[in-house]
């Protein structure tokens, strides 16, 4: 039995937290980097959605609609608190990534193998490093990379949420994000003492 409602209809608000709470919280935590602030954002999102639920047009799934509200709340929050941007801009990133290849498209850098990478998943510090690498991506790429992993969001909905014009653009952006994260993990995790957290 599924409590997910069909597209176009809004489900019982009493089931929202159970259905969407974890996905919204994880997205919020990745952006806010603070548990209680992320929880507040999730709560504000649900309460705002409650007020606006009659206006839900059903053009997207309920989850996408909620994430859209959350995304705006987070942007407002940062605007109000004028938090400094720590993320790189996309031009700088593209330049950096291109420097990994020479004129004819061959690797300029040598890659060294990672020993038993999956063991890192058992280490809490790894997740801190990985999150921090994601947070340093240009905002758009970070959002895309995170939203891509939320179950129940279609490619089309993600493109719409992030104003990405074509799925082809989305694939290219994802490729840049992964390439950057690979080199971030390489320098900050696998070729380090594994203790660095930030």
């Amino acid at each position: 039995m599924s409590i997910e409602s069909p597209p176009g209809a809004i489900s019982d608000p009493a089931t929202w937290v159970e259905q969407h709470g974890d996905a919204l919280f994880r997205y919020a935590l990745m952006k806010m980097r603070d548990t209680s602030q992320a929880e507040d954002m999730v709560q504000e999102t649900f309460l705002a959605a409650l007020k606006a639920r009659n206006k839900f047009a059903g053009q997207s799934s309920e989850k996408t609609w909620l994430i859209g509200i959350l995304k705006h709340k987070i942007i407002d929050h940062f605007r109000k608190h004028k938090r400094e941007q720590t993320s790189d801009d996309i031009e700088t990133l593209t330049e950096q990534l291109d420097q990994q290849f020479n004129q004819s498209g061959h690797w300029n850098v040598s890659l060294s193998r990672w020993q038993n990478p999956d063991q890192a998943h058992e280490n809490e510090a790894f997740w801190k490093t990985f999150s921090s690498c994601i947070a340093h991506l240009p905002d758009h790429l970070a959002d895309l990379f995170i939203l891509r992993e939320i179950k129940g969001l279609t490619t089309e909905e993600i493109c719409k949420l992030l104003d990405i014009s074509t799925t082809n653009n989305m694939w290219v952006m994802l490729s840049r994000a992964r390439m950057r994260l690979r080199s971030c993990l390489d320098s900050r995790w696998f070729n380090h003492d594994n203790q660095e957290v930030r």
Partner: peptide
């Protein structure tokens, strides 16, 4: 291999 690990990590993160 490293790209696949990044993708696996993303899945396990979220």
């Amino acid at each position: 291999k490293q790209l696949q690990f990044v993708a696996r990590s993303a899945r396990n993160l979220m």
